[in-house]
């Protein structure tokens, strides 16, 4: 896996993002701008759904925070990996390029990661991510309506493809996933508490995910916790 292959791999995902955003009513250039400034797949998809649903600023902030929490851990891990004397402004630049794949590539390096190396590593993925969004956003109107109507499922299916393999390999992950799904369904369907899933469902997602992860972290003791981020799925 190289910087170029990450960049290419991002294109289909960001293409779908561009397409979905424009269908939701975002202007194509705003969609491109979101990708350029966020560089976060699941976070962006959740974000546009919330914005379109008319969620509050707090809800948007909290949802983005929870979905992207893993970047915090990756960034924390990177502090152990980068050249100790790297200047603050350089750290601030490479921080923008903390994504699942770029992080994995940087963390498998044998030596300390230097600024030019990381800066080079993040360039093509940023280009690929932005370019894919551009293509998807402007292709949106060219696709036949029946395909457009079915494109929305693409994103969810990518999530399914990210969840299922680790859930079949690790029973603890399966338990975590099932608890989270059960809670999410409860917030959607049980009368009285289903108000939580209004405006794009940010709160429902936050509560379900945090509760499920907390329950599992408390009751399911994992044995080998060597840096797992490498195995963790792109999201």
């Amino acid at each position: 896996m190289t910087s170029k292959s990450i960049g290419l791999g991002y294109i289909p995902v960001s293409f779908t993002f561009g397409l979905v955003a424009v269908q939701m009513g975002f202007s194509p250039w705003l969609a491109v701008f979101i990708s350029l400034t966020n560089l976060a797949s699941a976070g962006q998809f959740a974000g546009i759904r919330l914005i379109e649903g008319g969620a509050s600023v707090i809800e948007l902030c909290m949802t983005t925070l929870v979905i992207n929490l893993r970047y915090f851990l990756m960034s924390l891990t990177l502090t152990q990996k980068i050249a100790p004397k790297m200047a603050l402004w350089k750290r601030c630049i490479i921080a923008f390029g903390v994504t699942d794949e770029i992080f994995v590539l940087a963390s498998i390096q044998k030596k300390d990661v230097q600024f030019p190396f990381y800066a080079g590593l993040m360039t093509l993925p940023i280009v690929g991510w932005t370019l894919g969004t551009f293509l998807g956003a402007f292709a949106a109107e060219l696709l036949p309506p029946i395909i457009q109507a079915c494109m929305g499922i693409a994103l969810y299916c990518m999530f399914i493809a990210l969840i299922v393999p680790p859930a079949t390999d690790d029973r603890f992950v399966l338990v975590a996933v099932l608890i989270s799904i059960a809670m999410s369904c409860m917030f959607k369907y049980v009368p009285g508490i289903n108000v939580i899933s209004q405006n794009g469902g940010g709160w429902s997602m936050i509560i379900s995910a945090v509760a499920a992860a907390a329950i599992c972290a408390t009751f399911l003791k994992r044995k080998n916790t060597v840096t797992d981020q490498g195995k963790e799925a792109e999201a």
């Binding site: 499920a212 799925a233 999201a235």
Partner: peptide
Amino acid sequence: YIPFCVLSA
């Protein structure tokens, strides 16, 4: 656990 829980919810 968080990424898997977020995505499934």
